[in-house]
């Protein structure tokens, strides 16, 4: 253990003046501090007005998520010294949530969105007995499908760095969608799968840009982006017909036929009429560039049957 010197650059917000500003705190502290302990040190020794939220100090209550060097995470789980870049640790509140003061954000809007996915079990009477004498059994294989997701501590780290929310504030959010996925996968849940999909279909699953930031953010190794792909898969399987399910079917089909996605015909396949304009523009562009018509889309490579047999076998045999 030794003392180290660095700058904590903290984004502050004064609610009375409705004013946000950066403030630098020069510290000389032990190198074993977590970011949360660093904040506590500053509050204790330098500026008692610095405001942040914390409780458990052991990555379980979910209170202390913030942006550290622009990346979302739990202040109590991250070592401050690992985050020093050019002598500075940069700390800001989560994005996409109203800031109350300094590093404290109001999580209510995200909780309201969470309610929309009905984040609770609607017990299936066939699976869940209505008395306390018998048990409702879940096999380990079944549980493995959503085990990780049940670890969510609602810290909002994923939400605070989600790019889909950057584009549309109405987007449900990564943790909300992971929760929706988790209840669909739960065999004890009695709600109709299609009904659960309806809850997320129009305010979430297709606006996600698959940026993977939620995977990078989550302190519990939950992978919301992958669960969102799972939701899209389920939407397709229950027969939803929309741009994304059409895209998924077309994509698989053309990769099977040629080895590549046919991006020339994809817009029409997925967006239907709206895609016609895109296709016409592409056609114009291709012709201007003197591209041969057979090169507008992909051509199967020699021996494409090998790939097709491979895909068929993977679908059948790999578990």
């Amino acid at each position: 253990m030794k003392n180290i010197k660095y700058t904590a650059k903290i984004k502050r917000y004064n609610p009375e003046k409705k004013e946000s500003y950066w403030q630098d705190f020069e510290v000389e502290v032990e190198d074993t501090l977590t970011v949360l302990e660093l904040l506590m040190y500053i509050k204790d020794k330098i500026d008692s007005t610095l405001t942040f939220r914390s409780f458990c100090r052991s990555a379980i209550c979910g209170s202390c998520a913030m942006l550290i060097n622009g990346r979302s995470g739990l202040a109590c789980k991250i070592q401050a010294k690992d985050k020093i870049r050019n002598g500075v640790v940069k700390i800001e509140p989560l994005q996409h949530l109203p800031v109350i003061k300094d590093l404290v954000v109001d999580i209510d809007p995200a909780i309201e969105k969470l309610k929309k996915v009905k984040p609770y079990l609607e017990p299936d009477p066939k699976k869940v007995p209505d008395n306390l004498k018998s048990e409702s059994l879940v096999s380990p294989e079944e549980f493995a499908m959503y085990d990780k997701q049940t670890d969510c501590i609602l810290c909002m780290a994923c939400y605070g760095q989600c790019n889909a929310l950057e584009g549309d504030a109405k987007y449900l959010g990564p943790l909300q969608l992971t929760k929706a996925f988790r209840f669909i996968m739960d065999s004890r849940d009695g709600m109709d799968v299609e009904e659960r999909i309806n809850l997320v279909e129009n305010s979430g699953i297709y606006e996600c840009v698959q940026c993977q930031m939620c995977l990078a953010a989550c302190p519990k190794d939950i992978k919301p982006a992958e669960d969102i792909l799972g939701l899209r898969r389920i939407a397709k399987d229950v027969g939803k017909d929309n741009s994304a399910t059409r895209r998924a079917k077309f994509w698989f089909q053309t990769v099977y036929e040629t080895g590549q996605i046919d991006k020339y015909n994809l817009p029409v396949a997925s967006l239907e009429e709206d895609g016609e304009v895109i296709k016409e523009n592409m056609e114009k562009e291709f012709k201007e560039r003197g591209l041969k018509e057979e090169n507008f889309g992909p051509q199967p490579f020699d021996g494409i049957q090998d790939l097709q047999n491979f895909i068929k076998k993977v679908q059948k045999e790999v578990k």
Partner: peptide, 18 residues
């Protein structure tokens, strides 16, 4: 030459193992 699409994050919507 005989390589195929990486899946583009879309083939997952059909089958992740593929």
């Amino acid at each position: 030459e005989r390589a195929a699409c990486c899946g583009g994050g879309v083939i997952d919507e059909s089958n992740k193992l593929v």
